[in-house]
Computed example of a mutant assay.
Amino acid sequence: MSQIYRKTISVMDKFVPGKLQPLWQHPAGPKTVFFWAPLFKWGLVLAGIADLSRPAETISPAQTVALAATGVIWSRYSLVIIPKNYSLFSVNVFVAGTQLFQLYRAVSYQMNEGKKTSS
C-alpha cells in the first residue's frame, strides 16, 4: 500500500503549482497523515453542530465530556509537537467548543428538570 501511495504522490508532485509548493512540501502538508487526520476530524465538528438541534434530554453528558476532553488534550498536543500542527489545533478547538456547549445544554436541562420535580 505504501508503494502505491508513494507512486501516487510522485505523480501528483508534477501537477502542484509553484505557489502551492510550500504547503505541498510542508512537514504537516497533504503528503502526510498530519494533514488528512485533522481534515477528516472536521466530521466530528459537523456532527456536533448538527446535534445542536437535538433535544437536550437526549444528550449524553458522559460522551460529551469525553469528546470535549479529547478536544482540549489534542489541542494542547498539536502545539507542542514538531512540526506544530495548526490544522489539528483548530479542529480540536472546535470539537472541544461544540461539545462544551452541548454539555452546557445537557446540564442546564437537567438542572431545570430537577427544579421542576422539587417544586
Rank of each mutant, 00 (worst) to 15 (best):
F94Y: 04
S87A: 15
S78W: 01
R105D: 07
A106N: 08
A50W: 14
Y86F: 15
G114H: 14
F101H: 09
V11W: 14
V93K: 06
V45P: 06
E113C: 01
Q3R: 11
P38F: 10
T8V: 01
P55N: 13
A96Y: 04
A68N: 03
L20S: 11
Q21R: 15
E113D: 11
P30M: 03
S60Q: 07
G43E: 01
R54F: 10
K19V: 08
L46P: 00
W24P: 08
V45M: 06
N85M: 04
Y86K: 07
A37V: 15
S119K: 13
Y77W: 13
P22V: 05
S119V: 00
W24C: 05
I9S: 10
I49M: 12
P17Q: 07
M111K: 12
Q110C: 01
K7P: 00
A66R: 11
S53I: 04
P17I: 00
S78L: 00
L23K: 07
V107L: 15
P17C: 01
I73V: 15
L67K: 09
I81P: 08
K41P: 00
W42I: 02
I73M: 11
I4A: 15
F94A: 15
V93Q: 04
V93N: 03
W42H: 09
K14L: 14
A37G: 00
T8W: 13
V72H: 01
R76L: 13
A106S: 15
K7A: 11
Y104P: 00
W24F: 08
F15D: 02
W42P: 01
I82C: 01
V72E: 02
P55W: 03
S10T: 12
T32V: 04
I59K: 04
Y77S: 05
Y104G: 10
G43P: 00
V107Q: 08
K7V: 00
L20W: 14
S119L: 06
M1E: 10
R76Q: 06
Q99Y: 11
A96I: 08
K41M: 13
Q3H: 13
G29H: 06
M1R: 09
G18A: 13
S2E: 14
I73Y: 11
A37L: 14
P55T: 09
A47P: 00
T8R: 12
V93P: 07
Q102V: 02
A37T: 10
K19Y: 11
Y5V: 08
